[in-house]
Design a protein around this nucleic acid. Structure first.
Lengths: 191, 191
DNA sequence: CTGCGTTTACTACGATCGTACTAGTACGGC
DNA sequence: GCCGTACTAGTACGATCGTAGTAAACGCAG
């Protein structure tokens, strides 16, 4: 039975997310994790008996952080004369800057999930929560966006995140991110 | 000096792309490559002295295949009453179905390129070629799309590819891909 | 204080990895 | 026909990997 000390477990999963971002899925190993946290050898495999368990735990921790952020986001209601494109642009921009590491980790896991059903289900929970949140937001804002359009918007949003996070940093200016958000909302054929 | 036998080298790079798609960057090793091609042990490291060289060679081979496909694509001129959204939808759909493996490989490399400048420059060549092609297409079609919009469209297109390639296959119906393409061209706020 | 379940620290093992190296083979120019 | 060059085959080595296991330390119920 794996140990359950929550503080230590969280330290490990947080470090795992960091490792995913900086060293890739390839670099996330039990030993690297121990080095990153300064914990004694063997600790990582005590908590996560297999590498797959480690990947799944990282995914679950990311989902946890994500729902916490979403909960915080609902509290700041948008200003009255808000524009969806501006909202999306701002969200995108902080995602590719201050949250870049977390999203790099997500994408590493996403690619890995092709070959790991357990990881795929963990990530689909994250996906589902995001969809729920976005749909709720569009509802609250009275945008009348159809279910299908919300879904399409999310695959575009998540995809844009991937593109931007992997683009050379000098290309991801605030202005360019706004342009991308604008196309998402108003279309490429609008200017 | 590494050997230069072109047929063998191509067999290796093609198998490397396959391995990237099926086993991930983590699974692309000299030995796995030899097993996949049936070539004797040591061959892979004879041709690609380091793992990085192997990754770069895979990226270059993908770029080669990509420009070949683009050259083929310019020959079939779109019908007279064409619609950009339909064009994009069709392109997206074949990309996520028949070319799924190649794009999975690209995304594996893209994530890896964060930590490998040599790989990043190899991939930026691919990116640049695609941009050139897309801009040319929009020009030839008389769409009058601005340089910046073409760029935004490409980050959305590439991103959508990532999302779709990693989505559960039952979700990527032709109809849904068309919906995504429609939003890209006409915007989410158009229905 | 004592006993027991759980967490912690540490070690061990076989497999595989990246990389470098050496011997053997094929072949075209002289 | 010989030779140098380039490719092929195969081996070696140290490092690291995933995983399993054990013994010490801890914390709390009785």
């Amino acid at each position: 039975m794996p140990p359950t000390n929550p503080a230590r477990r969280q330290a490990l999963t947080d470090a795992a997310i960091d490792l995913l971002a900086t060293a890739g899925a390839h670099g996330l190993t039990h030993r690297a994790l121990e080095k990153a946290t300064g914990l004694p050898a063997g600790t990582a495999s005590n908590y996560f008996p297999s590498r797959e368990a480690l990947l799944v735990a990282a995914a679950e921790r990311i989902a946890e952080l994500h729902v916490a952020d979403m909960a915080k986001a609902v509290e700041l209601t948008p200003p009255d004369g808000f524009d969806l494109a501006d909202l999306l642009a701002e969200s995108l921009f902080t995602a590719v800057t201050v949250l870049r590491g977390r999203y790099l980790a997500i994408f590493e896991l996403q690619l890995e999930s092709t070959r790991r059903p357990a990881l795929a289900t963990a990530l689909s929970a994250l996906q589902h929560a995001s969809l729920q949140f976005t749909a709720g937001l569009h509802g609250d804002l009275g945008l009348g966006t159809s279910r299908e359009t919300v879904a399409a918007l999310m695959t575009l949003y998540g995809g844009a995140l991937f593109s931007l996070v992997n683009a050379p940093p000098e290309h991801v200016t605030r202005k360019y991110v706004q342009k991308v958000a604008h196309v998402m909302v108003h279309g490429a054929s609008s200017g």
